[in-house]
Design a protein around this nucleic acid. Structure first.
Length: 890
RNA sequence: GGGCGAUUGGCUCAGUCGGUUAGAGCGCACGGUUCACAUCCGUGAGGUCACUGGUUCGAAUCCAGUAUCGCCCACCA
């Protein structure tokens, strides 16, 4: 692609190049690890949360993928044996939720299709939806190994699930028991506590009279006990009324019976310390089948358990006349009836926390059912120890406390879901009720307990919680339980990166299952990023309409710009607000980088001579600064501080390479006394340093850097050291720092800044040349100024320059290290307002005073580390010299 | 009810091991058609680091308390 400088537009058109570049990367095979790991290479494997198969890329995915891609690209450039394995999660509940809506439009329901046809339909749906996320990740530039892409419903994952469950079963960590679990009446499945979101709502607290029964069971006229409830519809399932044992008001009622409205059931009045006498009336209706507390109390007291709701939360046959009504209709009907009979004593607003299904928002219902549980305590203890003992580190570390707190209070995991889409629990029941668990795909040959043949066994219809298969992700994707080469090569993995939101759902489960099944921590580091919020700090959601669509953003400003906006200035685990100025900033940077490349391309001396001569001060300085940036960026990436890395790379690119180095280079290229060899050397240095810059920036802005790299590589292969593709290029290596050049340029740029400031104060025309007089503070200062004279002249627009001024007149201003300056004309002199000199003098003497006081303090000199004292002494000496020079000039 | 976190220029945020002059971007003011870039360049203003007390030679940083905001967890009808 012969690119001439004319063809390069000042506007960088991301949309036009990004797709093509991704194809080039794919074609190069750069995403896939070499067949054999390079000798001596370190392993770097990143674990990403597999997105939901039905999902579309949202801004959170974009952040996740960006952070991961930065790390992966960096490690690949380092030559590490790097793997980023992509995939999607089958997302049981979420997928069924979506498909149910789709088939509803087709006039079908789950029931009308039946399990088999429903699942066939689901697989067809998967064909449509599965590729979507992948395509979107490509747009973002995710350098994942597509050859290893996995799906949690593929056969390998299915086998891993069976084997994992079998091992848990064999270890006695699985049990089946009746329990009150959270149930979503809309999704018609059990959900875990984690999948329940609690929201505070204003409900009503109703007070209802239960009439007392005489000993013979007939009503005792005029006597009642009043109970308070927020859920009147559940009275149909009441089996007792409870009061506090010490409550004098009810002492004589304990042991008697109340009569349940509508159903006439006789309810014992019991005493139990669980009841809070201060709340409501001090008397509680007990509904063991529909309230966790009541369930516990019912168990303690041996009360009957009567479930009155069906799986869609309608009143069932136990509900008498209310049968078939939805729970809320039933509530209203019951209240109406109580009102009519005068038994509704009171109703008042009441704040309460209500659990909703995370997926569909429906109010969840405690429901009594037989469930599969995993006894997680022993697993949790190991997961806890790994973090406590430092074998797995969580970043940011304060989330370790959150992780620990959750694991310390963990409840057994109800893993069964009454859904169809997912991995069916590999347990079979024989007619005698024995349970057989097997990891064989075909199921058991016979009942494990008795002699029942396979033909008489029926498989459990429940499927697994999606997170059970996700919890196996780090190793199931690599071939576990088989000892595959990939498993040996890439497991345990390195860094697990995700949003802190799924710390419990996923990270803790991967730790628990990973430790149990593989005896090793699945990763050594957990990196958790925060949530991307809208400019007002609100969580983005489709219903609020405040979402930033990453794909639209990519189309508009390019993936690089979006990536940069997402990771810059953002500490781990901290939520961020994504604002338009930030996005603009990302776009501006890509444009800047593009234009720096355009300059280098256009500045090439034609023809290019053989480079020679000694490196200029600017060249030496920039090499040194590049080294500093490389060191800082490398350290940041090794410490998993992506924002720090981006900051280092951004700063060296814009504030040093573009703002100063390229300007200084222009001077070197255009100076009259330069030879062709000098010019060639200067240009080549600029091109090489641009190459380093592109290497450094590639992980965060891979597209524009790759495009620039291609252009530079074609123009001058030496600048890219013959590496044709940036994605496969090596990470830049630091060279020795040149402290002398850094000191000199620092002094020169400071002087230039001061002159520019003066020029503006003097109202000098921007393009005008002013004569400059400089009185150096020392011979060394004179040498520095002389060495950089051409830079001062060009960048401060001063000409002619006298470096040996004597200071007969009051100086305009002093440079920190070089000396006093004057302008040699009246126009310039007008800038010499004494105030400016005085101000600088005041600043200087204030600092000198401060340091003198500090250093005179024995406490400081005696107790502070010697290095600190030495540094402060040196600083004082420097400031004193400046102050003296300033005063001498006056 | 428990736990966690935050509070830094007008805005959004960094801030390493406590080190004396707290940074960036945006915004603001002023100037700019210097042959890479106006999605730009130059210069500048702007902060008692929420408050109170403590530890220390020295605190944005460590400790205690207060206030405000946010988040997570939790079975009180």
């Amino acid at each position: 692609m012969a690119t001439t400088r004319r063809e390069l537009s000042a506007r960088y058109d991301a949309a036009a190049v990004e797709t093509a570049i991704y194809e080039r990367w794919l074609a190069s095979g750069a995403f896939t690890p070499a067949p054999e790991p390079p000798a001596g290479a370190e392993r770097f494997v990143i674990i990403q949360p597999p997105p939901n198969v039905t999902g579309a890329l949202h801004i959170g995915h974009a952040l996740t993928a960006t952070v991961e891609d930065i790390l992966v690209r960096y490690h690949r450039m380092r030559g590490d044996d790097t793997l980023w394995l992509p995939g999607v999660d089958h997302a049981g509940i979420a997928a069924q939720f979506v498909l149910d809506k789709i088939i509803a439009e087709e006039g079908e329901t789950r029931a009308s299709l039946g399990r088999e046809r429903y699942l066939e339909r689901m697989w067809r749906f998967m064909d449509e939806t599965r590729p979507v996320i992948g395509m979107q990740h490509r747009r973002l530039g995710a350098s994942v190994d597509w050859t290893r892409e996995r799906f949690t419903m593929d056969p390998g994952s299915a086998r891993a699930v069976r084997v994992a469950f079998k091992r848990l079963w064999d270890a006695g960590l699985v049990y089946r028991d009746e329990a009150l679990v959270s149930w979503c009446p809309r999704c018609r499945t059990t959900i875990s506590d984690l999948e329940t979101v609690h929201r505070e709502e204003t409900g009503t607290l109703w007070t209802i009279r239960y009439h007392l029964a005489r000993a013979d069971g007939t009503p005792d006229p005029g006597r009642w006990i009043s109970v308070a409830t927020t859920r009147p519809e559940t009275i149909l399932g009441d089996t007792a009324v409870a009061v506090h044992p010490d409550d004098e008001r009810y002492r004589d009622l304990v042991g008697r019976e109340a009569i349940l409205p509508f159903l006439g059931r006789r309810l014992p009045i019991v005493a139990d310390p669980y009841v809070d006498p201060a709340f409501g009336t001090g008397a509680v209706k007990i509904t063991p089948a529909h309230d966790p507390n009541d369930y516990e109390l019912g168990k303690r007291l041996g009360l009957p358990v009567i479930s009155v709701l069906d799986e869609e939360a309608r009143i069932n046959a136990a509900g008498g006349e209310f049968v078939g009504r939805d729970r809320y209709e039933a509530r209203e009907a019951i209240l109406d009836r109580l009102r009519d009979s005068g038994d509704l004593e009171d109703e008042r607003p009441h704040q309460l926390m209500v659990g909703h299904c995370e997926r569909c928002g429906t109010v969840v219902e405690p429901r009594l059912s037989v469930q599969w549980f995993i006894h997680v305590k022993p697993l949790a203890e190991r997961a806890l120890a790994s973090v406590r003992e430092g074998r797995t580190r969580i970043i940011p570390d304060h989330l370790e406390k959150v992780y620990a707190h959750w694991l310390e209070n963990i409840h057994d995991w109800a893993v069964g879901r009454q859904l169809w889409w997912g991995h069916r629990i590999p347990a079979w029941f024989c007619p005698d009720g024995h349970v057989t668990v097997t990891d064989a795909e075909a199921g058991p040959d016979a009942c494990a307990t008795c002699e029942c043949p396979a033909a008489e066994l029926t498989q459990e219809t429940d499927i697994f919680d999606t997170w059970f298969s996700s919890g196996l992700w780090p190793f199931s994707t690599l071939g576990w339980p088989d000892a595959t080469p990939d498993l040996a090569r890439f497991y345990p993995t390195s860094v697990m990166e995700t949003a802190y939101e799924i710390l419990f759902f996923w990270v803790a489960r991967m730790m628990m299952l990973g430790l149990f099944l593989t005896d090793v921590e699945p990763f050594h580091t957990v990196y958790l990023h925060g949530i991307v919020r809208d400019p007002y700090g609100q969580k983005m959601s489709k219903t609020k309409g405040n979402v930033v669509d990453p794909l639209a953003m990519i189309t508009e400003i390019g993936a690089d710009a979006l990536r940069l906006a997402l990771v810059s200035g953002n500490a781990p685990g901290v939520d961020q607000r994504l604002t338009q100025p930030k996005l603009d900033g990302g776009r501006n940077f890509t444009t800047k980088l593009w234009n720096a490349t355009r300059f280098v391309v256009g500045a090439r001396p034609e023809p290019l001579a053989e480079p020679g001569g000694e490196a200029s001060l600017a060249e030496r300085w920039m090499r040194s600064r590049m080294t500093a940036a490389i060191e800082r960026a490398t350290r940041a990436l090794d410490e998993l501080a992506p924002a720090e890395y981006v900051g280092a790379a951004y700063e060296v690119a814009w504030s040093e390479y573009c703002d100063w180095f390229l300007e200084l280079t222009k001077v070197d290229l255009r100076r009259d006394d330069a030879t062709d060899a000098d010019r060639a050397r200067t240009w080549l240095t600029a091109a090489e340093l641009l190459g380093d810059l592109l290497r450094l920036l590639h992980p965060v802005v891979p597209f524009v850097t790759e495009e620039a790299w291609t252009i530079i590589a074609e123009l001058e292969p030496r600048a890219t050291r013959g590496e044709p593709l940036l994605i496969r290029a090596t990470w830049p290596s630091p060279s020795p720092r040149d402290k002398e050049a850094e000191r000199d340029i620092e002094a020169l740029t400071e002087l230039i800044r001061r002159i520019r400031d003066l020029r503006q104060a003097a109202g000098a025309a921007a393009g005008s040349w002013l004569p400059l007089e400089l009185a150096p503070v020392s011979a060394e200062a004179r040498a520095i100024a002389a060495g950089g004279a051409r830079y001062i002249e060009a960048l401060a627009r001063v000409r002619p320059m006298n470096l040996d001024a004597t200071g007969a007149r009051p100086p305009l201003v002093g440079s920190a290290t070089l000396g006093m300056i004057w302008f040699g004309t009246d126009a310039g002199e007008r800038a010499g307002d004494a105030a400016r000199v005085e101000l600088q003098g005041r600043e200087l003497s204030a600092q000198v005073d401060r340091l003198r006081t500090l250093l005179a303090n024995d406490q400081f000199t005696g107790r502070a580390p010697a290095a600190v004292v030495v540094r402060e002494r040196a600083r004082l000496a420097d400031l004193e010299r400046q102050l003296a020079a300033l005063e001498a000039g006056e």
